[in-house]
Each structure stands twice: as C-alpha cells, then as structure tokens.
Design a protein around this nucleic acid. Structure first.
Lengths: 164, 164
DNA sequence: AAGCATTGCATAGCACGCTATGCAATTGTA
DNA sequence: TACAATTGCATAGCGTGCTATGCAATGCTT
C-alpha cells in the first residue's frame, strides 16, 4: 500500500495522531469505568469535585477548559444518574453549586485506579523517562494553545506545503 | 489553586492531557476548515480518499480505525454536503464505493494547508527534534494500543471475545 | 430608583464517536 | 441445490463536544 506520491502523511500529522490517541484512551477508559456506572465525560468533572465540592458551574468550566453549555449538559446527566445534586447559592440567585452524592464520593478510589491503569497501559511502550518527557511536551502544547497568532492578526495563509 | 492533598493530578495524567490536546487541535482545525465547508470528522476520510478514490466503506474504516457505524454516518453527511457520492459495486451488491465530487477534489490543497498550519502552530513550543520525538512517541502508543504487549507480540485478544 | 450591561445557567441544534441491532447480498457447506 | 454463516452497510440511540441563543438575577451608572 506504499503510496508513491504522499501529499500528506496522516501518520506523521500531530493533529491526526492526537485525535487517534484520544479515541484509544477514551475507549479504554470507557471500558474500565462503565462497570462503575461512570462515563468519560463525567470523569473530569468528578476529578475536580472530588477535590472540592460546592463549586459553581462556572468554576468547573474554568477548571476543565470545557464550554459552559457542555458542562451544563454533563451536569444534567450526572444529576440524572445520581452522581451530583445542584443547589442554588443563597447569596446569588443565578448560581447553582454542585455537590456530590455519597455514591459519587464512594466511586473515587475505584475510578482513579481505573484511570491509572489505563494510563500505565497506554504509556507502556515508553520508558519512565520518556513518559515524563511526553507529559511535559503535552503540557507545553496545551499551555501554549496554538497561540501563534489570532485571526486577523496578520495576512497569514502560506507556509511550505511540503510538511517537513 | 494549590491543592493540598492531591490524590490524582489530572495535569500529569496522560489520558486527561491527551483528551485536552485533542479538543484544542479540533477547535483549531474546525476554525480553519469551516470556511471551506469542511468539518473535523470528514477530514480524515478525505485524506484517504484524496489518495485513492473508489474505496469501500470497509476499507475506509480499516484505514482510519473508526467504527463502521461512525463511518456510515460520516459518509452520509459528506454525501449530503456534496463531497462524495456512493455508487454500488458492480460485482458485489453489498458494497458501496465512495467517490469524490469535483468540489471535494478541489478542496485538497487548501485543506491540507490548513491542517499543516494547525500542526505547526500547535507544535510551536517544541523544537524540531522534539517534534519528531513527540510524533514517534504517539505512533508507538497507538501501535501498542494499550494492550500491554508489543505490536505483533501475540495474536490479539483484547476483549473482542465479548462482542461476538 | 430606573435602565442598561453583565453574569450564570439552560436549551436548541448539530457533529462525531460509540454500541447494538437489523437486513440484504454473498459465501461456504452439507 | 438448499441453507446456514458471514459480510457490508444502514439505522437507532446515546454520550460528549461545540456554537448560538434566551433569560433571569445581579451589578453598574446615572
């Protein structure tokens, strides 16, 4: 299958590989936490709430870099599934604070174990040192957020088509 | 925000970081290809079809590690949007072969340029050498698929037993 | 106090990924 | 040739992410 004229090699494209990796991680995590009654979308919210309950939706959004509407929907599912309750803030009528149910609190240890297991398995092919490097690189990429420029900052457009 | 008793640091969790990165990449790519009338889900399929038209759905699925049902839905959207046509195979009545429209063919260069731009921007914080390392690491992780064994180590066996 | 702007959240609608399931066409087998 | 198994694809239903929008509560300005 050796493509002779490769104009774009997806298997050397960071974006494609990141997407593929993310799907693999999600599949693995899903398989391991489904038995607990959890799903991949609720997991990050739980991670934050296991640290600190009573956060507002806005605070959760900021902690996870998720859009507000996405978080609202996720919390609705979590409430439906008996993981959280939303209670209005006494001082501010707009605010809904999020509290874990006993069930959600009890799921912390098995869920974290599942996540650790997935991470360990996925990083299996990397050495200890490489794992640190890998995580550092991802942190830097995320921290930088592709902020090379903003739209309208510069004519932009070109750039060597031959991905080097 | 210095968590005192950190039982699980999501910002050092490969799974969390991979998911976060994937969302950032997708946001960037979406912003750059939406003006072309493309979306992130169609992009991988187009990459394959720009190389070789007339593939079957099964072949596309294999090329992209996407579930068959996901591909069927993606192709339906692509057909709706005038990017592809599905034509039945003459020799096998089950098979639908996928062909690009002239419009889709014309989008190749601008779309690839957009993807390259996103990749370059995202990998900005990494040196040239680090980018290679990063891509190699991702390739290894994907190749190993979190099974704990090396590629080709043993004849399969994840949990496919359960799904028939 | 009145009026406008902002904030916090909900809802609608869609893309895209998944599992489960159904069905027609083909292949393999008795 | 009949009939069971397999293959290729479609559909249903759902989770998770996004943008766009609406609305009530609050804050700010005068």
């Amino acid at each position: 299958m050796l493509d002779t004229q490769m104009f774009f090699d997806k298997n050397r494209s960071a974006g494609y590989l990141v997407n593929h990796m993310a799907r693999l991680f999600a599949r693995e995590l899903q398989a391991r936490i489904a038995p607990l009654g959890l799903s991949t979308g609720t997991f990050p919210a739980l991670l934050v709430l296991w640290e600190t309950e009573g956060l507002t939706q806005r605070e959760l959004v900021a902690a996870l870099d998720i859009e507000q509407a996405t978080m609202a929907n996720t919390l609705t599912r979590m409430e439906r599934d008996g993981l959280i309750v939303r209670r209005g803030d006494a001082a501010d009528g707009r605010v809904q604070r999020v509290w874990l149910t006993p069930r959600a609190r009890a799921l912390r240890d098995p869920a974290v174990t599942a996540a650790n297991t997935v991470n360990e398995a996925a990083l299996g092919p990397l050495s200890k040192a490489e794992r640190e490097t890998f995580i550092d690189m991802m942190s830097r990429i995320i921290a930088t957020r592709g902020t090379g420029r903003g739209p309208g900052d510069e004519p932009e457009g070109r750039q060597a088509a031959a991905d080097g």
